[in-house]
Simulated assay, not measured.
Amino acid sequence: MTAASVAGSGVRPQPPVEPAEPATDAVIDLAGLPGVEFGDTEQELTERGMLRTSAESCGPTLTGHDTASPIFYDDRLVLLWVSPPVRTPEGITVGTPVSEVSSRFPALTRLTAPQGTYRFDGLLARRGDRAYLFLHDGRTVRKTIAGYADYAERLFDEGYGPC
Rank of each mutant, 00 (worst) to 15 (best):
M1Q: 13
T2Q: 09
A3R: 14
A4E: 07
V6K: 11
A7H: 01
A7E: 01
G8P: 00
R12D: 13
R12K: 15
P13K: 06
Q14C: 05
P15H: 00
A20C: 04
E21I: 06
T24N: 08
I28T: 01
G32M: 01
L33Q: 00
L33M: 01
P34A: 00
G35H: 05
V36N: 03
G39V: 03
G39W: 04
E42G: 14
E44F: 08
T46E: 14
R48N: 00
R52E: 13
E56I: 09
S57Y: 13
C58Y: 13
G59C: 11
P60R: 08
T61A: 13
L62R: 09
H65E: 07
S69Y: 13
P70G: 06
P70D: 00
V78L: 04
W81T: 12
V82E: 08
S83R: 14
P84E: 11
P85I: 06
P85M: 06
V86E: 08
R87N: 06
G91R: 08
I92C: 11
T93N: 07
E100C: 03
S102C: 06
R104T: 10
F105E: 11
A107K: 15
A107Q: 15
T109M: 10
R110H: 14
L111F: 10
P114R: 13
R119T: 07
F120Y: 15
D121F: 06
L123P: 02
G128N: 03
D129P: 02
D129C: 05
R130G: 03
Y132Q: 04
H136Q: 12
T144D: 06
I145D: 02
A146Q: 08
A149M: 04
D150G: 09
L155P: 01
F156G: 00
D157E: 15
